[in-house]
């Protein structure tokens, strides 16, 4: 090979960059974080059900929160009717965080896992939690 040294160094860098995820995670498969749903408020509920289905919330909660923000703040609409016809007050602090009072073990777990830092809390007050 002509200029073999330089080419091989280049190829090693290339392979290192492509296999970076494998090298970085060597032997430690990171499983999905576990969410804690056993807050006192949820335990008191008779029917443990969020405003929409679990599957819907998992994929679409950010869209729902965005819609809620627009409806409440811009349109003054404060009542949400879900797909089953039930009524909920549109409020992050009084509806969402009322049940999910454990931000650190609920919101943050997945958000950290997925490297997402939503800017909810630059306006809203984050719920006070005991250090765990």
């Amino acid at each position: 090979m002509y200029d073999g040294g330089k080419i091989i160094v280049g190829l090693i860098i290339f392979v290192g960059l492509v296999t970076f995820p494998i090298l970085y995670n060597m032997g430690k498969p990171a499983a999905m974080p576990e969410l804690k749903l056993n807050t006192p408020e949820i335990q008191q509920l008779q029917e443990k059900h969020c405003v929409e289905s679990k599957e819907y919330m998992r994929a679409n909660h950010m869209q729902l929160l965005n819609d809620w923000r627009d409806w409440a703040v811009r349109d003054g609409k404060r009542v949400y009717v879900n797909s089953e016809g039930k009524h909920f007050t549109i409020s992050l602090q009084d509806t969402c965080m009322h049940c999910h009072s454990n931000k650190k073990e609920f919101c943050d777990r997945c958000h950290t896992y997925a490297n997402v830092k939503p800017y909810c809390w630059s306006c809203h007050l984050a719920p006070k939690e005991k250090e765990t």
Partner: peptide, 9 residues
């Protein structure tokens, strides 16, 4: 919309 956390897993 997809379930991002499952995808990351």
């Amino acid at each position: 919309r997809v379930d991002l956390v499952s995808i990351k897993e």
